[in-house]
């Protein structure tokens, strides 16, 4: 935990790899993890999403940006059907995960959520030990039958979340004793331990200080080798740093989605340009 990295070398925009921009694939050219087709959503009489259609590619980081209340979090929470916990909501259209409908009648919501990990805006560890927090997902999902397997899974998950070195000597103490940034990484470890396919992150760093934020961003960058990550963020620099693709939401509609480098340099829509240049929002 050195304290130098306030002026870290800026992570190059991920897709700015050797391939010249023009030849790089857009979101639709890659294998698809999640796809929304004309998806609308209402809280009571308020329409929060207005016919969203988009494709989220596999094993990439996709960022949702937009001003507050633009629907980006609502859409994220529609992917694992978290919104339906709120009474009085309804939807139209469909979202698919690897080609399977998320909303059709016979879908097992519990099974669906097991495949989709989620990290929330405010870290929400259970008031249990660090170990029991990480082991919660594997336990309810029956992923590790033997104690040794569970121990290993907990360790791997904590390592993937870059937390192992800080907590390995106090796994059985309360998770509430960790700092805010550590708690958020614990929540990431907890989500990873359930061995999801997709990781949804709802402004995971908005409550953290810059150093903790940076750790989370580095973590996201490392995790995309294995996971499809969707991240909602208020912070456009963050979107530019961590994501391969960016979707700009405005007033419940998807304005534009494309490669992060292109969206931030040559947006197609005026509203996108206005937002990313700070003219509103």
């Amino acid at each position: 935990m050195d304290a130098q990295p306030l002026q870290r070398p800026r992570t190059p925009i991920p897709t700015a790899a050797p391939v010249p921009p023009a030849q790089q694939p857009g979101p639709a050219a890659l294998p698809t993890a999640i796809e929304a087709r004309d998806f609308s959503f209402w809280y009571g009489a308020n329409q929060a999403l207005n016919g969203i259609s988009l494709v989220i590619p596999d094993r990439r980081v996709t960022a949702f940006i937009g001003p507050s209340g633009c629907g980006k979090s609502t859409f994220l929470r529609s992917i694992n059907r978290m919104n339906e916990l709120i009474p009085g909501t309804r939807h139209q259209g469909d979202v698919t995960l690897r080609g399977e409908s998320v909303y059709r009648g016979e879908v097992d919501v519990v099974g669906l959520r097991r495949r989709i990990g989620m990290v929330f805006q405010k870290s929400n560890p259970f008031p249990k030990s660090i170990y029991d927090n990480v082991a919660y997902g594997p336990r309810v999902n029956g992923l590790a039958r033997k104690r040794a397997d569970l121990d290993e899974l907990v360790e791997t998950s904590l390592r993937s979340a870059a937390l192992w070195d800080e907590v390995s000597d106090r796994l059985h103490t309360s998770a509430l004793g960790l700092s805010g940034g550590q708690q958020q990484r614990l929540c990431i470890a907890r989500a990873l331990a359930a061995q999801p396919d997709v990781l949804l992150m709802d402004e995971p760093a908005s409550a953290l200080d810059p150093i903790a934020t940076q750790k989370i961003e580095e973590l996201i960058y490392g995790l995309k080798q294995q996971y499809t990550i969707v991240i909602v963020t208020h912070n456009m620099q963050q979107a530019a740093r961590v994501s391969d693709f960016t979707a700009f939401f405005y007033m419940g509609s998807l304005v534009e989605m494309g490669r992060t480098d292109l969206l931030f340099t040559t947006p197609k829509e005026d509203r996108t340009e206005a937002y990313i240049t700070g003219r509103f929002g």
Partner: peptide, 22 residues
């Protein structure tokens, strides 16, 4: 907190498990 319930449900816990364990 709602966040506690959501955390458990998002990990694939059933309502029953969420109520009893969280």
């Amino acid at each position: 907190p709602r966040a506690q319930r959501e955390a458990a449900l998002a990990l694939g816990a059933t309502r029953w498990e969420t109520t009893w364990q969280i």
